[in-house]
Design a protein around this nucleic acid. Structure first.
Length: 798
RNA sequence: GCCGAAGUGGCGGAACUGGUUUACGCGUAGGUCUCAAAAACCUAUGAGAGCAAUCUCAUGUGGGUUCAACUCCCACCUUCGGCACCA
């Protein structure tokens, strides 16, 4: 019988589906395990082999855990709102909803052809009104708690497409779609106060088990720094400029003040003589986008306002400048310039001839800024202190004078939640002329996205929804007067913020999710996804979950107990797979040629799971050979009664290896060990008996679910291999009787010999010294020391 | 610049807690089978020297610790990923 994956895979997939194999059971007495993969965006190009990598790898873990007796929840759904589908609709005229349905069907067919053990009964779709009803509901809860608000914010605006663009849609300062130069436009946007959660989002990372790099990325993105806010009084006015600094110890070295162009005091501070230049400068920097401002990093520009402020420590006159290298939204939009001890300030001072005053010794400020900590000089009473001491002392002094206090700053900004697009969740808000912002009553949710013919953007920067007057014009729920719906929609993060909760109770129309079920299943025990989602998606969904915890919906402060990431699957040429490079690998082709089991195992075997790796068609073939070899081996040996002790030992060793490696996501070495075992058994076919065959099949089942199911039935079993208990290894059997004793002289291998495991040190010395080769090496030299490492080696030092 | 990770054959990569470097796969060479080829299977395969036994050199570079270093420490180089004028 030949190994024919095409035939057996379809057969077993059907069998598993008909018998509801992989359903998770609410409140089961078995220990629960919630394993989550990032749900895919059903794009028009179909499933990517990268999806397969993470889904099959986690599927192997899931299958093994089920065999070990866990009640596993391994769900799947569709993150279907978003730009690619909307752009496709604009281009082709096919409605996003229609396109989404079609794409979901394709993805579903493809995923099912891989034999992944998802619980399909819990399938969700973010574009389903029954689902986004609750996305909207969460928005209303945030609004209720004052965590959602509206603000005027500049957005990236494409004058040709007439649409607000997300940062991801701006490439090289041009519109991704049409290539027109992007401008800044002020629009009123919905915002979430995620900054209120900044500390908890950092500190609670201690409660979970995230990979170090993921943890670091979260911390980096939030960007917390401790420092001092210092007030600089103005020379000729009661106003003061408040600046944030982490280097209070350099306060005596301040030789200028730079304000961001947006700073509210700029206009007031600009003197008549300087008005022209300042206005010109501000106008120019307004025309620059965020991109240009950061792009011109090397060259710092600025202009003098004509005014001065006073250094609080010594009343020195400090010129006030405007410069667009100062970020308006951070630290009050002002910077105290200490050229001697900050690189950027040094550049700025050099360019405009500002004084460079050394106040921390240890460097050579005639050459470059000295940014390390050191001893204070030129700082009056604080001279001689270390930087650490001076930061404390000067801050205390400022506090006494009422001119400064300790504070914390974050890079994290509030989250812009509005998009001027059609294909997203409508924001459940009504704007009433007399009542103002009125939330849609919860009983009226969902606010359904109207099915329209035209989703082309408008001239005004409004969402395409603004054109649908019968949808927009409504009665105010409060006063019954004329009112209009909010026409912006939510970003694609909205649906993916909380989807893992909905899997727990996907059909509930009374609540977001039943609390008892939530308590049973949460938190997610293990969440695996792409590295590209370890900052924003992770942060946003943790924020939303924390909020829901605060309003007593969620049972725990963190949603994900463990977070891991997979590396990208690149094309054969090492580039990203892309239609334009014509290097895309279609999983359908691989399944058709070699079968799903080969594809699954290849993607686990190709390299370390967390690293990006290029596709290799030859490698796929190698895996197929392995499976064929295994197939033949089992069929040839199934009549053998008993296995030899070496084969049994090898099987138990493999068992241990898989147990260890799978937990650490070392799929590649698990498979390699399996290959080794099969190679060994193939050379000792007569010694491979029924007992080991059954064990081997069970061990391969999580990796090659179809083939092992077929062979299991071939052995005469009537039930499924996936319902069997995972085999345990016996540490006594694992233990080898013999080992290779390495004999070294001065740390270099000179001889080897097979000996018994429990060889004593004395015996080992005797053996080693009696060997001819060793005698020759030692000659008449004196033996200084002999080191014996049990079960490994003996080293003779001469 | 900051944070995170990595550097081992022709290639992807193994190596537990410091103890045989190169597992497994690919590729290559030779062989078996065949009229022939493909497929499959078997054998060999880090580099250099030697008829051979065997020896020398090899884990980015330079030092160090140790009986022993891919592994630990110090300095440097390179590559990748993330953040980035965040004061």
């Amino acid at each position: 019988m030949k190994y024919n994956p095409q035939e057996i895979e379809k057969k077993w997939q059907k069998y598993w589906q008909e018998n509801n194999f992989y359903q998770a059971e609410d409140f089961s007495k078995k220990p629960k395990l919630y394993i989550l993969i990032e749900f895919p965006y059903p794009s028009g190009v179909g499933l990517h082999v990268g999806h397969c990598r993470s889904y099959s790898a986690m599927d192997a873990i899931v299958r093994k855990k089920r065999m070990e007796g866990f009640n596993v929840l391994y769900p799947i759904g569709w993150d279907a709102f978003g730009l690619p589908t909307e752009n496709y609709a604009i281009k082709t005229g096919i409605h996003p909803q229609v396109a989404t349905e079609k794409n979901v069907a394709t993805f579903k067919r493809q995923l099912k052809s891989l034999g992944l053990s998802f619980d399909w009964d819990r399938e969700i779709n973010t574009t389903d009104p029954k689902y986004y009803k609750w996305t909207q509901w969460i928005f209303l809860q945030l609004l209720k708690k004052d965590l959602a608000y509206q603000a005027e914010i500049p957005v990236n605006w494409c004058p040709s497409c007439k649409i607000g663009l997300a940062n991801e849609e701006v490439i090289d300062n041009k519109c991704e779609r049409c290539g027109a130069k992007v401008e800044q436009k002020i629009l009123k946007q919905w915002m979430f106060k995620i900054t209120k959660y900044a500390d908890r989002l950092i500190d609670d990372l201690d409660k979970v088990d995230f990979w170090e790099k993921i943890r670091a990325q979260q911390i980096n993105w939030i960007g917390r720094s401790y420092g001092t806010n210092i007030d600089f009084k103005l020379e000729n006015s009661e106003d003061k400029i408040s600046v944030f600094t982490t280097r209070t110890d350099t306060l005596f070295g301040v030789t200028a003040m730079v304000l961001a162009p947006e700073h509210p005091l700029v206009e007031k501070l600009t003197t008549k003589e300087n008005e022209k230049q300042v206005k010109k400068y501000i106008q120019e920097s307004k025309e620059k986008t965020e991109f240009e401002r950061t792009e011109l990093e090397k060259e710092k520009t600025g202009v003098f306002t004509g005014s001065y402020c006073l250094n609080p420590v010594n009343q020195e006159k400090i010129p006030v400048w405007v410069g667009d290298y100062v970020v308006g939204t951070y630290g009050g939009g002002a910077v105290m310039v200490v050229p001697a001890h900050d690189k950027r300030d040094y550049d700025f001072a050099k360019k405009y001839g500002l004084e460079i005053k050394e106040v921390i010794s240890g460097g050579d400020i005639s050459k470059q800024a000295f940014v390390d900590y050191g001893k204070l000089v030129n700082s009056e009473e604080f001279n001689g202190l270390s930087s650490e001491q001076a930061i404390e002392k000067i801050t205390q002094w400022l506090k006494k004078q009422g001119l400064g206090k300790k504070t914390v700053q974050y890079k994290l900004r509030d989250w812009i939640f509005s998009r001027q697009h059609y294909w997203g969740e409508p924001i459940p808000i009504i704007h009433c002329k007399s009542c103002g912002v009125v939330p849609v009553p919860e009983k009226d949710l969902p606010v359904e996205l109207p099915f329209v013919e035209k989703y082309q953007p408008t001239d005004t920067g409004e969402s395409p929804l603004a054109r649908i007057s019968e949808w927009v014009n409504v009665k105010c729920p409060k006063c019954g007067g004329e009112a209009k719906r909010e026409t912006d929609t939510m970003p694609n993060w909205a649906g993916s913020n909380w989807y893992f909760m909905r899997y727990i109770d996907p059909k509930n129309d009374k609540a977001l999710v039943d609390k008892k079920k939530l308590k049973y299943w949460m938190p997610v025990d293990w969440y695996n996804g792409g590295m590209e989602h370890t900052t924003l998606h992770l942060l946003y969904s943790r924020f939303i979950y924390k909020f829901l915890y605060d309003i007593k919906i969620c049972p725990s402060p963190e949603p994900y107990q463990k977070r891991t990431s997979h590396g990208m699957v690149l094309a054969e040429d090492g580039r990203k797979m892309s239609k334009s490079f014509d290097n895309v690998i279609n999983p359908d082709e691989i399944v058709k040629t070699y079968g799903a089991d080969t594809l699954r195992i290849y993607e686990m075997f190709m390299g370390p799971f967390d690293q990006a790796i290029a596709w290799n068609p030859k490698g796929v073939k190698g895996v197929f050979r392995f499976l064929e070899k295994f197939w033949r081996l089992i069929l040839e040996c199934k009549q053998n009664e008993k296995s030899s002790s070496e084969i049994i030992r090898a099987a138990h060793q493999l068992n241990r290896k898989i147990d260890r490696d799978l937990e650490k996501m070392k799929f590649n070495t698990s498979i390699a060990a399996f290959m080794e075992f099969v190679n060994f058994a193939s050379l000792n076919k007569e010694k491979l008996g029924r007992d080991v065959i059954e064990r081997a099949l069970k061990m391969l089942a999580p990796f090659a679910p179809h083939m092992t199911e077929e062979l299991w039935h071939e052995l005469g079993f009537k039930d499924s291999i996936h319902k069997q208990a995972w085999p345990k290894h016996d540490s006594k059997i694992v233990q080898e009787k013999m080992f290779t004793l390495i004999i070294q002289i001065n740390g270099r291998v000179r001889d080897k010999i097979e000996v018994e495991v429990n060889l004593s040190e004395k015996k080992a010395k005797e053996i080693a010294l009696s060997r001819e080769k060793i005698k020759k090496w030692i000659g008449d030299k004196e033996i200084q020391k002999i080191i014996f490492v049990p079960q490994r080696l003996i080293n003779i030092v001469i």
